[in-house]
Design a protein around this nucleic acid. Structure first.
Lengths: 229, 229
DNA sequence: ATGCGATGAATTGTCAACAATCATCTGGAA
DNA sequence: TTCCAGATGATTGTTGACAATTCATCGCAT
């Protein structure tokens, strides 16, 4: 949220990151249409580059590309939502299991510090930061587990999870606190792979169970207000 | 291997499929440079579309895009190779486990028929078909297990595995026969999830263990001879 | 003879204009 | 009034040309 738009060029990666954040952090609601020309003005980039970025976002499942119609922020169905959680359990259970065997002191420090940061954001009622850090925790585990392929996939799945929660979260349930994350770190530090796996499973199942199974549509918001200067 | 090139336009998907097959089935060796103009002539498509396809292939790990240099068929390192197998074990063990719980009669038929086709190709010494069917078996399991996300990822991993085997397979070892696949099907039919998981693990470990851990470079071949008319 | 710097060809990156496609709106007939 | 057909405007898809970058070659000084 730092660089001004509409003035100077922006690299492809910046545009991608910017849109990714805006979607994953729920600033742009599911179903919102993303027009190429509109984006090219906002980022002062040519349409060709915007198009390239949109294709990357589509491949990550964050947006849906409809031929001759354009790009829309994805609206995952309940089946897709369940599939995302199935894939996350598959991957993350294995990653924490591996991490228990390979973690070192530096890794433990990074995990502890991260959970601490989550706790601060939570007590400060900083919802946006809490959401971002909550996802980043899972990505940190993947990074420390040293499986590039699964880490890359998990990055996509985490952002899709944000999208899913934006659509299906019941309104009274707040974002889960850092307590469960802390429990996972404890298991890793104790090198108890069996328990770490179980706690991770419970954690993900917990999140999934908080969701509502009816389809909701979310009103589209104005892009310039979010991405513009 | 049916459509003639250089004459009529080809849709993006066709170009992608064509290159994907050529790389995954080892007709184009690792390290081969793919020039955009060359490909645009072969497929009689504009460079922009070629570029688009190349980016998709890069995201699937089949080719590597070097800025301002071009596209090269990937040469996975030994670490990346191990990571691919780690990811495959993670995913496929879970998929066969799930499949044991959800398989129906139609699915069993498809599995049996596929293994039979593999057996025929193997006894006919049809190496290309054997390679293709061997990969397709794993994809069939993923399809039947009904997890779109993991199936998509596995598709990429299977083609990367072909690339890895092209680079690191010891020359005397032939492609594994259909016997292990048959054993996996037996476990699924018996709905023995625990054993299915173990047999799948063994199968993938077996393939990985057949590999050599030294780096080999493979000579580049001529593109027109493979993709051209 | 060897190393270093300039030159040039080849290739990728970028862009703006053009063509094709789709949604919407209008108007008329049943 | 309702439905369908056609025109219209907006948006995406595609193309070819141009700019930027890289690699290889050659010349030159040491």
């Amino acid at each position: 949220m730092d660089m001004e738009a509409g003035t100077r060029p922006a690299t492809d990666q910046e545009i991608y990151q910017r849109l990714w954040s805006a979607i994953a952090e729920r600033q742009i609601g599911p179903g919102t249409r993303l027009k190429e020309e509109q984006l090219s003005e906002i980022f002062s980039a040519s349409r060709a580059r915007i198009r390239q970025v949109l294709q990357n976002l589509a491949r990550d499942g964050l947006i849906t590309l409809v031929p001759n119609r354009g790009a829309f922020v994805s609206q995952p169905s309940t089946e897709e939502a369940r599939d995302v959680f199935f894939a996350r359990r598959t991957i993350e259970e294995r990653l924490v299991e591996k991490l228990c065997a390979t973690i070192d002191a530096g890794g433990i420090d990074r995990l502890r510090n991260h959970v601490e940061a989550e706790r601060r954001a939570h007590s400060n009622r900083d919802i946006a930061a809490a959401i971002r850090l909550s996802g980043a925790f899972h990505l940190l585990i993947a990074e420390l587990a040293q499986s590039q392929i699964l880490a890359d996939l998990l990055r996509d799945l985490v952002s899709r999870t944000s999208l899913i929660m934006a659509m299906y979260r019941q309104k009274d349930v707040l974002n889960c606190g850092p307590d469960e994350h802390n429990a996972i770190v404890d298991c890793i530090v104790a090198r108890d792979a069996r328990k770490a796996l179980a706690v991770m499973h419970h954690h993900l199942a917990h999140i999934e169970n908080q969701l509502d199974l009816e389809t909701d549509r979310v009103a589209a918001r104005n892009l310039e207000d979010i991405l513009g200067a």
